[in-house]
C-alpha cells in the first residue's frame, strides 16, 4: 500500500515535470518572474551560504590540524584536506541540504499558500499554465546555483586559510601549497555537475509538495517539513549515485 503510494507520487512528480515545460508563459511576464526568483532564491541565500561556508571551512582546517599529530606528516595536508572536503562534498552537497531547508521550505510554503488561498485555481481558471508560471522561473533561477556554490567553495577554503594561519596551526605558504597540491580539474567539473542536478531537485521537489498539497495553514507547515525531508533524501541519494558514476571507475 505504502509502496503503491510512493510509486504514484513519483509518477505524479514526473508528470509535473512534463507539464512545467508545456504552454509557456509570455516572455515579457516570465522575464520578471525569473528576476524575482533569482533575487529570492540566489541573492537571498548569499548571506547564509557565505557565513556557513566560511566558518565550516575554518573548522575543517582546525580539526585536520589537531588530528595531524605525527611530525612526519607534512602540514600542507591541512590545506589539501580543507580544499578536498570543501570542494568535493561540503560546498555542493551539504550546502544543498541546508538549502533544502532554506529555499525548499520557502518554495513549498509560498506555493502551498497559493494553493490553499485558491490563487493557483485562479491562474488555472484564467487559462494560465500554473506549473509553468510558478515552477519554470525557479528552475531557470537555480541555473545560477553553481555560482552560489562557487562562492561557498572559495569562502570555505578562505575560512580554512584564516583559521589555519591566524590560529597558528600552519603558515600561509604551506596552506596555499596544500590547496594547490595534486589538483585534479575534473573534481571541479564533478562538483558542478552535482550542483546542477541538486539545483533541479531543489527547484522541483519543494514545488511538487507545495503544488499538490491539500488542506489549510497547518498542512502548509507539514508540507514544508515533508518537502525538506524528501529533498534532503534525494540530494544524498543522488550524491551517492553521481559520485559512483563520475569518480568511482
Amino acid at each position: 500500500m505504502m509502496l503503491t503510494r510512493y510509486i504514484t507520487q513519483i509518477g505524479r512528480y514526473f508528470l509535473m515535470l512534463k507539464e512545467i515545460f508545456n504552454k509557456q508563459t509570455k516572455w515579457s511576464v516570465m522575464k520578471n518572474l525569473i528576476f524575482k526568483e533569482i533575487d529570492d532564491l540566489i541573492i537571498g541565500s548569499l548571506g547564509i551560504v557565505a557565513f556557513i561556508s566560511f566558518f565550516v571551512g575554518g573548522v575543517v582546517a582546525i580539526q585536520t590540524a589537531l588530528n595531524l599529530t605525527n611530525p612526519l606528516i607534512p602540514k600542507y595536508l591541512i590545506g589539501f584536506a580543507t580544499r578536498q572536503s570543501v570542494v568535493l562534498e561540503f560546498a555542493p552537497t551539504f550546502i544543498s541540504v541546508i538549502m533544502a531547508g532554506k529555499m525548499g521550505s520557502f518554495i513549498t510554503s509560498s506555493i502551498g499558500t497559493m494553493r490553499v488561498t485558491e490563487q493557483i485555481d485562479a491562474l488555472e481558471v484564467m487559462g494560465v499554465n500554473s506549473l509553468n508560471y510558478l515552477v519554470f522561473p525557479k528552475i531557470i533561477a537555480l541555473l545560477l546555483y553553481p555560482f552560489l556554490i562557487g562562492i561557498a567553495m572559495f569562502l570555505g577554503v578562505l575560512g580554512g586559510w584564516m583559521a589555519g594561519v591566524y590560529g597558528g596551526f600552519i603558515s600561509s605558504a604551506e596552506f596555499i601549497n596544500g590547496t594547490q597540491m595534486d589538483f585534479i580539474p575534473f573534481h571541479i567539473v564533478y562538483a558542478f555537475i552535482k550542483t546542477l542536478i541538486f539545483a533541479m531537485l531543489l527547484a522541483t521537489i519543494p514545488s511538487f509538495h507545495g503544488y499538490y498539497m491539500k488542506g489549510g495553514a497547518l498542512e502548509v507547515g507539514k508540507a514544508s517539513t515533508v518537502s525538506f525531508v524528501w529533498t534532503s533524501v534525494s540530494i544524498i541519494l543522488f550524491n551517492y549515485i553521481l559520485t559512483q558514476l563520475l569518480l568511482g571507475s
Binding site: 499558500t113 497559493m114 488561498t117 485558491e118 490563487q119 485555481d121 485562479a122 481558471v125 484564467m126 487559462g127
Partner: peptide, 18 residues
C-alpha cells in the same frame, strides 16, 4: 485555454495574488 480567457472568476476568498 482560449475559452478560459473568456471566463472571469470571483473566488470565495478573493484569491488575489498577494
Amino acid at each position: 485555454r482560449e475559452l478560459r480567457t473568456e471566463i472571469g472568476m470571483v473566488f470565495q476568498g478573493s484569491a488575489l495574488f498577494d
